[in-house]
């Protein structure tokens, strides 16, 4: 479970987050949506202790993110940011194996190897396993990075724009895997998503942010209304229902 209490964050005099409080129960998929500059990525990186907390308090599974040793926290939460430079001369298998570092400290056991193999297979990376990461396309690289985060096998998984660069097939595939991770293994998945329809179709809960605040929060059916979407994104969006699911026609 993730608890965020009164978190504010400013950079260079600009307020990015203003007094955000949220409670995300264990298990389930939560999507964070919102326009550019809403503070979604900042919130995610604060939960993942990639930036120091300035004000407020965040705990993940009872561990305060600013005072728990990093190595311990790495067994509780995995985070993938959206801008990832990748070191050179690194094979896909080696990259994915880094996900096991918190457990193995670099000495892979057979169990670690099994995790790596499973992750590679799950994200369709078997054919590229021995290739250097820098020779992959953007989407393939993104899949390798997601596989690495999955491989960390933590109760809590934070993903920043995981659908970036992914084609339709792999985007859908990833969302289904996130769903399965929550349903079958009880993992808590929090993902910043750009596409409201992916969020609506696969998330249990959507948190909408704007100007550093949470402006709407609830299950997709509740949130997917033209009024709420207009309040968040700034333009009138038609919402229809297909097979009982709300679909936003945001591009029209």
């Amino acid at each position: 479970m993730i608890r965020i209490e009164n978190v504010s964050f400013a950079r260079g005099g600009t307020e990015i987050l203003r007094d955000v409080s949220l409670e995300l129960p264990s298990g389930g998929v939560t999507a964070i949506v919102g326009p550019n500059g809403a503070g979604k990525s900042t919130l995610l990186s604060l939960i993942g202790r990639l930036q120091p907390l300035q004000a407020g308090r965040i705990t993940v599974g009872g561990h305060a993110v600013d005072s728990t040793p990093g190595a311990e926290l790495a067994k509780v939460l995995a985070i993938l940011r959206q801008d990832n430079g990748v070191a050179s001369r690194l094979r896909v298998r080696e990259l994915v194996a880094f996900g096991r570092f918190p457990h193995s400290r670099g000495r892979l056991s057979n169990e670690d190897r099994a995790h790596v193999a499973a992750s590679l297979a799950a994200f369709g990376l078997d054919a590229f396993a021995e290739r250097f990461v820098e020779t992959l396309s953007g989407g393939q690289r993104q899949r390798a990075l997601i596989a690495m985060a999955f491989c960390q096998d933590t109760p809590c998984l934070l993903l920043d724009e995981p659908l970036n660069n992914l084609d339709m097939f792999h985007a859908r595939d990833l969302m289904r895997r996130l769903r399965a991770a929550a349903d079958e293994r009880g993992r808590t998945v929090v993902a910043v998503l750009h596409d409201i329809n992916h969020a609506a179709a696969y998330a249990d809960r959507i948190v909408a942010m704007k100007d550093g605040r949470v402006v709407a929060d609830g299950p997709p059916a509740e949130l997917m209304t033209p009024e709420t979407l207009e309040r968040v994104f700034g333009h009138r969006i038609r919402v229809t229902t297909i097979d009982g699911r709300p679909v936003a026609l945001h591009h029209l």
Binding site: G70, A71, K75, R81, N84, G85, V86, F101, P102
Partner: peptide
């Protein structure tokens, strides 16, 4: 892997 990725993997 860089600062963010190493922090994520639990390296101070």
């Amino acid at each position: 892997l860089g600062q963010d990725a190493s922090t994520a993997l639990g390296v101070d």
